[in-house]
């Protein structure tokens, strides 16, 4: 996947680099200094109790939220800012949008466009944002549908698809922009248990193809199997992180132990 990319990576450093990232909503500080590194091709699973700031952190990575402190860089470039002469300059919308287009995001509630068919959902952004001819975008969209196992459902509207099918279309829609990084926010939490497997299979394939992924999930089994690094967050900070075996099977912190005892 990532080798299809036309824009050369700015550095060969990490894909995501967060240093003391802070985020406030009004007076409430939700992220209290997140420090985290995601290497190229790495899969990082974010775990943590509800309200710990996992979604907020993901949204900061593609600049859907603006950070209030610390440094956050994707592919060597600061998120939302340009550094010039030791000063930070806010980016114009055009620039923000260009960088955002290189990061795919998958939501808990799919957020497919209900007035577009599955195929149109996937082809929309490449046409609108990248200026791809519609025919070519449709051909590629069809290939992506095949890849997520829904090659015959291109004409269906989202309301005519099951949750698991919708989420796979949503993944295909994100992949259509050929992202260098994929963010998943609890992609299987809204699904009936028997539909979770299909979505995880698609994600597993993506990871195997070398996609860099940050996944917020409560699927401990998936994290254990696919993640290179598991990060446990609580109350706006990273409590501990490391290989799945270490964090999941031999947690060092009480808070991690308490959380894992509830979800396992």
């Amino acid at each position: 996947m990532s080798d299809q990319h036309t824009t050369a990576p700015a550095t060969d450093g990490p894909m995501v680099l967060a240093e003391g990232v802070r985020k406030r909503f009004g007076l409430v500080e939700v992220l209290k200094g997140i420090t985290l590194e995601v290497g190229r091709g790495e899969v990082v699973c974010l775990l943590g109790p509800s309200g710990s700031g996992k979604s907020t952190f993901l949204r900061c990575i593609n600049h859907l939220e603006r950070i209030n402190g610390g440094r956050l860089a994707v592919d060597g470039q600061l998120v939302g800012y340009r550094e010039q002469g030791g000063k930070l300059h806010e980016l114009r919308e055009k620039e923000v949008v260009r960088r955002r287009a290189e990061i795919g995001m998958v939501f808990q509630r799919f957020n497919l466009f209900p007035h577009r068919t599955a195929l149109e959902n996937i082809a929309e952004a490449p046409v609108l944002v990248r200026g791809l001819p519609r025919r070519e975008a449709s051909t590629r969209a069809q290939a992506l549908l095949d890849r997520v196992g829904l090659g015959d459902r291109g004409d269906a509207y989202p309301a005519q698809l099951s949750g698991g099918q919708q989420q796979r279309v949503a993944i295909a829609r994100a992949l259509a922009m050929e992202p260098k990084l994929m963010l998943f926010d609890e992609p299987t939490s809204a699904l009936d248990p028997e539909l979770v497997g299909d979505v995880l299979d698609v994600m597993r394939d993506l990871a195997r193809d070398g996609m860099t992924m940050v996944v917020v999930t409560h699927e401990i089994g998936f994290a254990r199997e696919v993640a290179d690094t598991v990060v446990f967050m609580d109350d706006g900070v990273v409590v501990e992180s490391g290989p799945p075996a270490a964090v999941l099977d031999a947690p060092q912190h009480e808070r991690t132990k308490a959380f894992l005892s509830k979800v396992l």
Partner: peptide, 26 residues
């Protein structure tokens, strides 16, 4: 639903594109 503009923006659409192609038609 706000998730609609969020999804559109996450795909790299500008706010104007999001309004025209995603929000207004719905």
């Amino acid at each position: 639903d706000e998730g609609q503009s969020e999804a559109a923006q996450a795909l790299g659409m500008t706010r104007a594109q999001t309004m025209r192609r995603i929000v207004l038609p719905q």
